[in-house]
């Protein structure tokens, strides 16, 4: 895979929590408009890796990082504005985390921060962003009559789609998803998975998942993490049906993890 077309190009990424090393020499590329799944047993570093792509690990004092992560060729570990980066590289979390405010205000939160709705008809413009984002996240029809009611009244699956809408509203380029369906029921999970396929046309998606069937269903490329190392990375079909590394094979066939 050529580095110059990659959305993310990760090279020799090491990460420590204090003294313990959580990521070891991670090197691979993430292609634009694809879904990349990261799989591996708990504590293997896949979430930590994901959180490095929008520098959420900055919030943890003890984290030290080495190596390079290029986003569209820009070195995001050293030479970048974190606020802008997070606007471009959005994140959806494991547990739906809507803010305790109305559905509308949740989606409008990001655009208001970044002044995305401008001009004379600012309110109209914001309404449009909110509506478009909710439509895009396949939630609009379910909430259009209660936009100004609290988001905490939504079901778990709806909350998670609201969180996706909230991210889409800041017009990102990449979506990072940290086990976005692990707290949801199968029907909500199916809705989000079919949404992912739709979103892929416009965004680059990186998804961490515990659920191998999910990785198989939704992703184009898959990376297998084990104890902080990227054991194998390749096309999803290759990883699942023709793994090169025996550890990948054991994990895929359910022998551990």
């Amino acid at each position: 895979m050529a580095t110059d077309t990659a959305k993310f190009s990760i090279k020799d990424l090491d990460l420590w929590y204090g003294e313990s090393q959580a990521l070891k020499k991670i090197t691979f590329d993430i292609q634009p408009n694809t879904i990349t799944a990261l799989i591996g047993p708990s504590g293997c570093g896949k979430s930590t890796f994901l959180r490095q792509l929008n520098r959420m690990n900055d919030l943890i004092d003890s984290v030290k990082v080495q190596g390079s992560v290029l986003y569209d060729g820009l070195d995001i570990l050293n030479d970048c504005d974190v606020i802008e980066l997070r606007q471009k590289v959005g994140m959806v979390f494991q547990k739906p985390n809507p803010f305790p405010m109305s559905i509308y205000d949740n989606v409008a939160y990001g655009p208001r921060l970044h002044g995305l709705a401008t001009g004379k008809k600012r309110h109209r413009a914001l309404d449009e962003i909110v509506e478009r984002s909710l439509v895009h996240a396949a939630l609009f029809d379910e909430v259009k009559d209660r936009m100004h009611k609290s988001a905490l009244g939504l079901s778990g699956g709806q909350q998670q789609r609201l969180c996706i809408a909230r991210v889409l509203a800041v017009e990102p380029d990449v979506l990072l998803m940290d086990e976005p369906t692990s707290a949801l029921d199968p029907i909500s999970t199916a809705k989000i998975e079919s949404l992912l396929d739709d979103l892929k046309k416009q965004y680059t998606i990186v998804i961490v998942t515990h659920n191998m069937q999910q990785a198989g269903r939704v992703s184009d490329a898959t990376g297998f993490f084990l104890t902080g190392e990227m054991v194998e990375f390749g096309k999803t079909d290759d990883i699942f049906f023709n793994p090169k590394d025996s550890r990948t094979e054991s994990y895929i066939s359910g022998r551990f993890g």
């Binding site: 606020i83 959005g90 547990k95 939160y109 991210v167």
Partner: peptide, 20 residues
């Protein structure tokens, strides 16, 4: 998670404190 949600949308610490 609520703070992280705000930071992940590109909010500063001041914005996260006052708005969330």
């Amino acid at each position: 998670e609520l703070r992280e949600g705000s930071y992940a949308l590109g909010a500063t610490r001041r914005q996260t404190i006052s708005k969330v």
